[in-house]
Amino acid sequence: MAETEKMIFPAQLHQTADGGIVVSKLDDMINWARSNSLWPLVFGTSCCAIEMMSAADAKYDWSRFGFEVARATPRQADLIIVAGTIVMKMAPVLKRLYDQMPDPKYVIAMGACTISGGPFFYNTYSVVKGVDHVIPVDVYIPGCPPRPEALLHAMITLQEKIKHETYFGKAKTEEGK
């Protein structure tokens, strides 16, 4: 993927006598668009949400990657960053939010709580021990709470993942190539 990353646009210029022809693969195009336009849902339950806000601020500035269009309605979001503990009462709501999002949709589990329950793993009666019990997760970020850079890294990792998808059929994996 190193080549496509450097490229401004996922296309190649074929030189001809009077100019050139731009050739591109549909898959590359789609993946390029999808990976560069991840609009997160405004969703934060606890401490990690503050670090998510920090990622949006001027110092970390996730708008550089085009992530700043945070949508309040799941209908227009591509990505749900589960920032904070999910408890039993919240789990159905989260599931519902995920269902309300249109495809393609991605999930980032931010923080220890969403990975396993984190600090609230032992002796708690109301915490969901890992958000992947409720919705499928694409990228996990450890930390309690993770630093904003970690969130940016996760989002860039997600971009990498999206670049391996195919519009029709299965994902481009190492074996399937």
Binding site: F121, Y122, N123, T124, Y125, K129
Partner: peptide, 9 residues
Amino acid sequence: YVDENMISL
């Protein structure tokens, strides 16, 4: 209170 799902240390 008993909760079967509760994991004790």
